[in-house]
């Protein structure tokens, strides 16, 4: 099997996330899956309206769904990795059925489990997450590969008809230093709710 990190066309993960979050509008809420998605979002710009998940692998997309349904006037971006998305694959079916107009899922697909030694994930062994999403009924589901494709993907995010969307961005890990945001769940949840103007309970 080819080393997933060496496949041509893969974007720098950190730069891809930076480009994506540069397009963040003020109404966006961001939920990150455990691992590098959380570190990248924190490294680029910590924000009280980022909710970082540090565990509960496979829960990021569904957390995004609950949030998107609760906050229909805002847009929710779920940013996660291929391993995390694979662990909650059924969520793609569940979310497609609900078809929330304000939810987008971006999978940073490096084809590997970066936190545990870089073992090849299923996406490096032939599984196409965007095709799975399409099969579940997502109309906007794409694999984003290369600078031009990323640019055109990000430019379309401003358009209402681009949502909901699923995108698997082909990325590589350039070994950036990890930026660790706070880990305390109560703190992160209360900070997030407070930024939305909600009380602690």
């Amino acid at each position: 099997m080819a080393d997933p990190q060496r496949i041509e066309g893969r974007l720098s993960r950190r730069r891809a996330v930076a480009r994506l979050l540069a397009a963040r509008a003020r109404d966006w809420l961001v939920v990150t899956g455990l691992g590098t998605a959380t570190y990248d979002a924190a490294a680029i710009a910590d924000d009280p309206l980022n909710f970082y998940i540090w565990g509960a692998m496979g829960s990021a997309a569904m957390t995004g769904l609950g949030l998107a349904l609760a906050q229909p006037a805002r847009r929710v971006l779920v940013l996660t990795g291929d391993g995390e998305a694979l662990m909650g694959l059924g969520a793609l079916a569940t979310i497609a059925v609900q078809n929330p107009p304000n939810l987008g899922i971006v999978v940073l697909d490096n084809g590997a489990y970066g936190e545990t030694g870089g073992q090849a994930s299923h996406t490096a062994r032939g599984v196409d997450l965007a095709a799975v999403a399409r099969g579940c009924g997502w109309r906007n589901a794409a694999r984003v590969s290369g600078e031009e494709a990323l640019e055109s993907f990000v430019e379309r995010l401003g358009a209402v008809e681009s949502w909901p969307f699923f995108a698997a961005i082909a990325v590589r890990d350039d070994g950036e230093e990890r930026t660790l945001p706070p880990r305390e769940g109560v703190f992160l949840a209360d900070r997030f709710r407070s930024a939305l103007g909600l009380p602690p309970s």
Partner: peptide, 18 residues
């Protein structure tokens, strides 16, 4: 599709005030 999805759903709902 599986019950565990519901824990994320409920947490996300509460984060958003629902």
């Amino acid at each position: 599709t599986t019950e565990e999805e519901g824990v994320g759903l409920a947490t996300g709902a509460w984060l958003g005030g629902a």
